[in-house]
Structure formats: structure tokens, C-alpha cells
């Protein structure tokens, strides 16, 4: 197995006042390149915390996190920011688009962290919007888009810099069933046809069926891994 994400004996503790709460206990995990992994579990099981560690938004209290062969658990804040720009595409539950920017400008944002020229950035953003089927909405602002369209723009933004890993936190949590299925189909296409490795947190068993593997967390521990035999389509 060609692991792109490797976690070894990862724990995560938060201190609030005098209380220390351990959210993740000794997680060992490998995710192979090209996998589409659904992280499942009840509320408070540590799914989002685990996703944040994989995406470099947070760092473990102990243990190691390596993504694409690079240890990220001890990187400084600024190096971690540069690392995220190079390796991670984020998709959030509420899209997190910049309200004052058009769809195309939103998609271009990660490219501002590269050395691409303005014209190249524009071309790449248009291409990413075309991949998610929204080329004709490039000049629309987020408030002129439906929830599904806004999430597609967010996915285009996550894709545009060709990251190593797509990290999705409840990407369909704010959408109705049919729109959610469209988004999940899109993620599946990105995984199958474009070879994107995807880690997705979800509560929804139907959403998890679109993934190639399901990881189950409970009370901060990995309690099971299942390969989805027949993925939804």
C-alpha cells in the first residue's frame, strides 16, 4: 500500500481552564494514495479533530502525522501554512466562500499563493470551474448561487492548485438529498477519474457509501475500517 497519510500513535488533548480533555487516543492510521475515505462517528467522537490534524490545521499533542512523506506535526505556523497551500484543498460544510468575490475570484484565491501569472491564474480558475460544471457562473457572487452551486465553487477552489489531498468537512451537511448526491458524485468523479485522494468527515451513512473506505471513530478511537464494496454512483 502506497500510504499518502500516516498517523502514528496520535493523541490530541485540549486544555480548558484547569481541565484537560483528551479528544483522540493513540490513533494509528494509513490512507493510501487514490483512496476516498469517509470518517464516520457520532458527535464528539473526534472526526473533525482528526481531519484537522490530517489537513494541517491543528497539531497533535503526541504522535506523528506525515502527509506525502513529510512530517507536519512539528512544523511552525508559517511553514505549515505554506505546506497547506501546496498539499491540501479544503471543502467546508458551509462553503466558506468570500462573499465579496465572484466565483472565479474565489477559485483563484489559492493560486495567489503560487507564482502563476494573473492570466494563468484566470485560465486555471476557469478550468476548475468547468470541471465542477459551473463555467457559466464564473462572474456570479456567492449570494447569487444555490447551496449546491456554492459548494461546487468551493470544490473548484479546493482543486485549482492541484493539491495532494482533498479534505472535506461535512461537505453535504447543508444540502438537501439530491444536491448532496450531486456533490458526492462530483467528489467520486474527482477520485476515480482525476485520481484525487479524498478524506471526508460525514455523519451521513449514505454519503459514506460514495467513499472507497469508511473509518469509524468512537470516543476518540478508531473502532473499525470497512472497505465499501459497491460504492454509490
Amino acid at each position: 500500500m502506497n500510504a499518502i497519510v500516516t498517523l502514528q500513535n496520535v493523541t490530541k488533548r485540549y486544555t480548558r481552564g484547569k481541565q484537560t480533555v483528551e479528544v483522540l487516543h493513540g490513533i494509528d492510521l494509513e490512507i493510501a494514495q487514490g483512496d476516498f475515505v469517509a470518517l464516520m462517528g457520532p458527535s464528539g467522537s473526534g472526526k473533525t479533530t482528526l481531519l484537522n490534524l490530517i489537513g494541517g490545521l491543528d497539531q497533535p499533542s503526541t504522535g506523528s502525522v506525515a502527509v506525502a512523506g513529510e512530517r507536519i506535526d512539528s512544523l511552525s505556523g508559517s511553514r505549515l501554512a505554506k505546506w497547506r497551500a501546496r498539499h491540501i484543498g479544503f471543502v467546508f460544510q458551509f462553503y466558506n466562500l468570500m462573499p465579496m468575490l465572484t466565483a472565479q475570484r474565489n477559485v483563484e484565491l489559492p493560486l495567489l499563493l503560487t507564482s502563476l501569472s494573473a492570466s494563468q491564474r484566470k485560465r486555471n480558475a476557469e478550468a476548475a470551474l468547468a470541471v465542477v460544471g459551473l463555467a457559466e457562473r464564473a462572474r456570479h457572487k456567492p449570494n447569487e448561487l444555490s447551496g449546491g452551486q456554492a459548494q461546487r465553487v468551493a470544490i473548484a477552489r479546493a482543486l485549482v492548485a492541484d493539491p495532494t489531498l482533498l479534505v472535506c468537512d461535512e461537505p453535504t451537511g447543508d444540502l438537501d438529498r439530491s444536491t448532496a448526491d450531486e456533490i458526492l458524485n462530483l467528489l467520486q468523479v474527482l477520485n476515480r477519474e482525476h485520481g484525487k485522494t479524498i478524506v471526508m468527515v460525514t455523519h451521513d451513512p449514505k454519503a459514506a457509501e460514495f467513499a472507497t473506505h469508511q473509518l469509524h471513530l468512537d470516543k476518540g478511537k478508531l473502532v473499525g475500517t470497512t472497505a465499501t464494496s459497491t460504492t454509490a454512483a
Partner: peptide
């Protein structure tokens, strides 16, 4: 706050 956090998640520096 969310906009700023999103930008920083994408990789914008502090």
C-alpha cells in the same frame, strides 16, 4: 472570523 480562518486554512500567512 470565518473568512480570515478560511484564508489561513487555504495557506495565507498571518
Amino acid at each position: 472570523g470565518v473568512e480570515i480562518a478560511t484564508l489561513r486554512a487555504i495557506g495565507f500567512g498571518a
